[in-house]
Amino acid sequence: MSESILDIGSYHVGSGHPCFIIAEIGINHNGDIDIAKKLIDSAIHAGCQAVKFQKRTVDIVFSEKELAKFRESPFGDTNGELKRGLEFGQEEYEIIDGYCRKKEIIWFASCWDEDSLEFIEQFSPPCYKVASASLTDDNLLNHHKKYSEPKILSTGMSSLAQIDHAVQIFGEKDLALLHCHSTYPANNEELNLNCIQTLRNRYQLPIGYSGHEVGLVTSVAAACLGACIIERHITLDRSMWGSDQAASVEPHGMKRMVSYVRAVEAAMGDGEKRVWESEVPVRQKLRRIG
């Protein structure tokens, strides 16, 4: 059985195609649309193919008890004030949609509840991301099936049995999986990058990698191991306020990572052993026989 290919906008995503690199903006905009625009620009400058946001209906995703908890932030002293302060609404997403269209970069979102999915659908995204936290939410997974766009499913903090179940709900058409470790930041010793091949062998689907570790080398290694999607959080500055900033990549780092992945792709080749024309003069110079 051959591995399927996803079509996301004008990009073909899967084995044999260039790695699809996503800059996860998430909530690193800190509720500021100008920061969001700068992050979009940084992703474009780095050579990413897409940017991704997160969309939640705060009162659905979080309980009243959770929202009432004390938590200091620039938005107030409760967790609810923080969550609402970080959440973009209609005006901001219209700006994001127009800005990304103008800049010619794909954008989409991970939707954490059914209302958020309905909200994002108005912008006709080329695909949807399903966060690791939502992998066991059967109602949300089934709600995604209302729409024909490809789905990218992260598999952090999930067993193979749970992933099997989610794949069964979605079906194998227009689906990609991302190997993921859900700690922010993740320890290298727990990344288990060899699981990329485990998932490829098990599901025969496009398999990518969503990284939350510090540094770039492991994401490049994921590309070497066959990841056809690489997703990393992007930030203007890792020292900025925010829960995800420390596990994110700054603009110059994102640019380096993209260039490293492209260098790896160029170097991997097709696996067929051959003598290159450029080697012939060296062979004639150095070999005594043959």
Rank of each mutant, 00 (worst) to 15 (best):
S134I: 04
A227E: 07
D138H: 13
Y99P: 04
E64V: 03
T235R: 02
E172N: 12
I44F: 07
R202K: 14
D115H: 10
S10E: 14
L175F: 10
D138S: 15
L178M: 14
L135A: 06
V258Q: 07
G80M: 10
R274W: 03
A223P: 05
I21M: 15
L82Q: 04
I120C: 02
K83E: 13
R288H: 05
R288I: 09
H233D: 05
S134P: 01
F53W: 11
A223S: 14
R262N: 09
R232H: 09
E92R: 02
V214F: 10
S134E: 14
D244I: 03
G156R: 09
A263H: 07
N192V: 03
E24N: 03
E104T: 11
E272L: 14
V282R: 10
G31K: 02
L199A: 09
Y209F: 15
V280S: 00
H17F: 15
E94M: 10
F70S: 11
N201L: 10
A176F: 08
I40D: 06
L6H: 08
E64W: 00
H165F: 08
C111L: 09
S63E: 10
I120Y: 01
G89H: 13
G9S: 11
S278M: 06
S132I: 05
S219P: 04
V249R: 00
R287H: 08
N79A: 12
E118K: 15
D97G: 00
T235S: 14
Y260M: 14
I230Q: 01
F88D: 03
N139K: 15
F20Y: 15
E149W: 04
H179K: 13
F75Q: 02
G208P: 03
C224W: 04
Y147G: 06
S210P: 05
S219I: 08
C19S: 12
C180V: 09
T57Y: 01
S239Q: 12
I196P: 06
K146H: 12
E250D: 08
S278L: 05
Q168A: 12
E149N: 14
T218K: 10
E24D: 13
P150K: 08
G16A: 11
A68T: 06
K38T: 05
M257H: 06
H144I: 05
M254G: 04
H144N: 11
I35M: 01
E104H: 15
A68P: 04
S4F: 01
K273S: 12
H181L: 11
L141N: 06
P185H: 10
S73P: 02
L175K: 02
K37D: 00
A221I: 13
P18S: 14
I35F: 00
P125Q: 02
R56E: 01
E81N: 07
D77K: 14
K69I: 03
I35A: 00
L140A: 05
F88A: 06
E87N: 03
A166V: 04
E118W: 00
Y99R: 08
G171M: 08
N142H: 13
L225V: 09
G242W: 00
H233E: 08
W276H: 11
I163C: 09
F62P: 02
D115R: 12
A266C: 04
E66H: 06
T198W: 02
N79M: 12
A36Q: 00
Y93H: 14
A50D: 01
